[in-house]
């Protein structure tokens, strides 16, 4: 093997390894949504509990966390404790509200889910035919969207929200630190 080939061979091997090393930091679930920075599709849907329908545009002027979930979704169980905590933690904030969208589900199983794993107390829209979910480009569960006071989607999070998500991801956006 002559010198040039040796350098090429070792160079290619190193480049691939380096790429992997850098690539380990990527989160494969972090897929940019084309809906970010677009106006959110408004929805009005029957609530899971109570007679008052859930309407997104009723929360204009507030930041809204829209969380898509279903009782059939295993990762939603893992996410649930954080949603409970976040709901408690932000209860006093007037600029932030949470909404759930229970999609492709039947309301009884969803209510049973809340009875079993705890009820965070915010409103959930029923979306058994996944009309809202399709409008919003949801392809798995859980998925969460952060909608700003003007009704524009500012962020999408695929997979369970993690403890500290609000402080690390949502607050910088809400305080205008990140455009």
């Amino acid at each position: 093997m002559n010198g040039l080939w040796k350098i090429v061979l070792l160079g290619v091997v190193m480049a691939i390894l380096l790429l992997f090393a850098l690539g380990l930091k990527n989160d494969p679930r972090d897929i940019p949504s084309p809906l970010v920075n677009r106006p959110a599709n408004d929805f009005t849907a029957p609530a899971l509990e109570g007679d008052q329908p859930v309407r997104l545009s009723a929360h204009r002027g507030q930041w809204v966390l829209v969380n898509f979930w279903g009782s059939w979704c295993v990762s939603c169980v893992a996410e649930h404790p954080y949603l409970m905590e976040l709901a408690k933690q932000t209860k006093k904030r007037t600029d932030f509200v949470m909404l759930g969208v229970d999609f492709r589900d039947n309301p009884d199983s969803a209510r049973a889910f809340l009875a079993r794993h705890g009820n965070p107390g915010y409103a959930h829209a029923q979306d058994p035919e996944q009309k809202i979910a399709i409008d919003w480009g949801v392809y798995g569960a859980p998925e969460s969207y952060l909608v700003d006071p003007n009704g524009t989607i500012r962020m999408k999070h695929t997979g369970p929200l993690f403890p500290g998500w609000f402080e690390q991801r949502a607050l910088p956006l809400m305080q205008g630190a990140v455009k």
Partner: peptide, 17 residues
């Protein structure tokens, strides 16, 4: 796995060259 693979690849191709 990356460390393991790097060790193996650099050892093998290094020895080959």
């Amino acid at each position: 796995i990356l460390i393991f693979m790097s060790a193996l690849l650099l050892f093998s191709f290094g020895l080959l060259t």
